[in-house]
Nucleic acid binder design. Structure first.
Length: 715
DNA sequence: TGAATCCAT
């Protein structure tokens, strides 16, 4: 059976593919080098998805949207794009895209597929992630792995995504912000491009919902009008025995530790993975296990090795969890949610699940994000348990009752789009020509209040006009910038302030996390202070960066000496150079040398330093004016400047806000009267901490944002 | 006066 691909003149034929197989098999006998060729192709056929190859291709002929329910280990991500390529979907210069929620996934999967196809990565098979385009500039790339956010951005350049014949939205059940928006955008594109095909790869739970979202069939009785189909593919997973607590625990940390020792003393070999919510808990569990392990009779039980893993941990320490332990010893990895989907630790036979996770949620009333410990969803619980069944039969110990799982946990987590700051996304939708964003077809709509808040901010940044239309050229330029709108505005305005070089550095530095290694230690604080200035964190970061490229010669040794995270600095360097390229292009300049600086090229202050820091901080105010605060009378905290706005000019939904200086800020022990800040994080204890803070003069708010702080005498 | 789930552009 041959398949016809809409819009193609050269359908692939099974004859060709049979010939390929023959030649491969024939060559095998000649050399060991080619032997690996056969094993790779044999390996491909062993994957569960291979059995569904014909069916997948058939469905794609007949349905615009195929929802693929595929469990872990089915091989869908690496194989389906290859099947499409082999059967002609990439003929005529067209491309098959496969989106991933994470950068690492996009790069590693592309690497693997390039190996399977015996091509160089970046040619027939490539990937695109932010700031890294590993595809063929000559247009030879046929299979493209990319982050979901990148595909969304590509729609800005080409609203019909015309080069793609098939787009596979992988891991759609994770419901990331960009996957969700892409679904709405693709639904619109499908109306104009009947030749386009979409594969939505999802977990069992929401397959019907995805299909219903894309369905254009208004007549459920007439199946011939269906444009969507659902297909299930088995995974390669071993069964996992799930155990619940008989009674709820009041202390899951202690219960987790006890369960570790129960497993260790009663169960056969196999490493243990423990899910906790954050660094503090992880360190506590790890040190308790280490301590109690010393009391076990050494000749009776194997050695037990407890290791932490979380995103903020330095890379070298993270790597330890992937190393095999000595024979006979048992590894206990205590992890945050990184181990649920982002990181796979080999050799896990047992999972202990606290049932909790920290999630970030945006509060439109205060414009702040909070970080709170929440009960996980049933889908998360199953995903966590599944981590025990990757090598052989496993066991999962859930530190909650079956009743709690069935009655208290929601089936799936709240989609990201319902708990995010939507300003950047709304701006990009406007740039895509979607004027009425409130009526955009979302798979799950965000709360109306979050949309209003986003529109209000964009209006105050002058990216939207009185009618809610994108302003030209400013709003359009801002939308094209791959940054948060407030940060984007300071870069676009930096030319007028004469400090573009400095703002590029600052924007890059606030975009990476954990510049200081182990920032809470006294030694790290001391190093931090060496770069510190009273103007605040932004200029301190500028000093760190300048020292890194001049005195530090971009070396890892210098970083180690100053307790600075080398990986973070390298990333900042790369982000900066990309932002620089964008800024040069957006401003219509010929090269980076045309971008003004208020300091010397090497970061030393050749001009009046005071004048320079004023320029930089004023420029920050031009983008961050909505995030300003004034010190409280008792000097212990700050009050959001929104409080100082006249009633009529206050945010639609406004509540007065106390803000605290984050202990990692260089201004922690200082009392600047007025500040602006990059972000606020509200912790579980209900305290809102400002991060990346700079001292400002209140007059600047009136001068640079008169439309925002209307006639305010209090400033 | 004291603190960091995790991604993405």
């Amino acid at each position: 059976m041959a398949f016809w691909k809409p819009g193609t003149v050269a359908p692939g034929s099974l004859v060709d593919r049979e010939a390929e197989k023959d030649s491969e098999a024939a060559i095998v006998t000649f050399s060991d080098a080619k032997y690996s060729t056969m094993t790779m192709s044999e390996q491909r056929k062993q994957l569960p998805v291979y059995k569904h190859r014909t069916e997948i291709l058939y469905l794609l002929e007949n349905y615009q949207v195929v929802v693929l329910v595929g469990q872990t280990g089915s091989g869908k991500t690496t194989q389906i794009p290859q099947y499409l390529h082999e059967s002609g979907w990439t003929a005529g210069g067209r491309v098959v895209a496969c989106t991933q929620p994470r950068r690492v996934a996009a790069t590693t999967v592309a690497q693997r597929v390039a190996e399977e196809m015996h091509v160089n990565l970046g040619m027939e098979v490539g990937y695109t992630i932010r700031f890294e385009d590993c595809t063929d500039p000559g247009g030879k790339t046929r299979i493209k792995y990319m982050t979901d956010g990148m595909l969304f951005r590509e729609a800005l350049m080409d609203p019909l995504l015309s080069q793609y014949s098939v787009i596979m939205l992988d891991e759609a059940h994770e419901r990331t912000l960009y996957t969700d928006i892409l679904m709405g955008v693709l639904k619109k594109i499908l109306k104009k491009r009947p030749d386009l095909r979409i594969i939505v790869s999802s977990a069992t739970l929401d397959a019907e919902a995805f299909a219903a979202f894309f369905s254009t069939n208004r007549d459920p009785k007439d199946k011939s009008k269906d444009n969507t189909a659902i297909l299930s593919v088995q995974g390669r997973m071993y069964p996992v025995d799930v155990h619940y607590l008989a009674e709820p625990t009041s202390n899951y940390i202690e219960t987790a530790i006890q369960t570790v020792f129960d497993i260790h003393t009663k169960e056969p070999a196999g490493d243990i993975l423990v899910f906790m919510t954050g660094r503090d808990e992880i360190e506590e569990v790890v040190s308790e296990i280490r301590e109690r392990a010393t009391t076990l009779p050494p000749n009776k039980y194997a050695e037990i090795l407890a290791l932490p893993i979380y995103a903020g941990l330095p890379t070298e320490e993270q790597m330890l969890v992937f190393e095999p332990v000595e024979k006979g010893a048992r590894k206990v990895v205590v992890a945050t949610n990184v181990a649920e989907a982002s990181v796979t630790i080999p050799g896990i036979g047992f999972v202990i699940d606290s049932g909790f996770v920290k999630i970030r949620a945006y509060n439109p009333q205060t414009g702040m994000e909070s970080l709170t410990t929440t009960t996980i969803s049933q889908a998360s619980a199953d995903q966590r348990s599944g981590r025990a069944g990757r090598i052989r039969n496993g066991k999962a110990y859930r530190l909650y009752t079956r009743e709690s799982f069935e009655q208290e946990m929601r089936p799936a987590s709240v989609p990201e789009i319902q708990r995010s700051n939507l300003a950047g996304m709304v701006l990009q939708l406007k740039a895509l020509g979607i004027e009425n964003v409130l009526r955009f077809d979302f798979m799950t709509s965000p709360p109306a209040e979050m949309m209003s808040k986003a529109l209000e901010l964009l209006y105050s940044l002058k990216a939207l006009d009185n009618y809610g239309r994108l302003t030209i050229p400013f709003g359009m330029r801002l939308a094209e910038f791959p940054l948060d709108p407030m940060l984007g505005k300071i870069l676009l305005d930096s030319q007028a302030f004469g400090c573009s070089q400095e703002m590029l550095t600052i924007a890059a530095m606030v975009s990476v996390q954990n510049i200081f290694v182990n920032a809470t230690s006294p030694a790290a604080e001391e190093q931090h202070r060496r770069f510190g200035v009273l103007e605040g964190d932004h200029i301190t970061l500028l000093n760190v960066y300048a020292a890194f490229i001049t005195r530090g010669k971009k070396s890892s040794k210098w970083c180690a000496n100053h307790l600075i995270n080398f990986k973070a600095m390298s990333r900042a360097l790369s982000i900066r150079s990309h932002l620089e390229r964008y800024l040069v292009k957006t401003l219509g300049l010929t090269g980076p040398s045309q971008l003004p600086s208020c300091l010397g090229a090497d970061g030393s202050r050749v001009n009046d330093p005071n004048e320079a820091t004023v320029k930089i901080r004023k420029c920050l105010v031009s983008g961050y004016f909505a995030q300003a605060a004034k010190i409280a009378p008792d000097g212990t905290h700050w009050i959001s400047a929104l409080e100082a706005r006249p009633k009529g000019a206050r945010a639609l939904s406004y509540s007065p806000t106390k803000l605290w200086m984050h202990p990692t800020s260089i201004l922690f022990k200082q009392t600047p009267q007025w500040v602006i800040f990059h972000e606020v994080v509200e912790t579980g204890k209900g305290k809102a901490y400002m991060r990346e803070v700079s001292a400002i003069e209140p007059e600047w708010l009136g001068e640079l944002a008169p439309h925002f702080y209307v006639l305010n005498k209090q400033l």
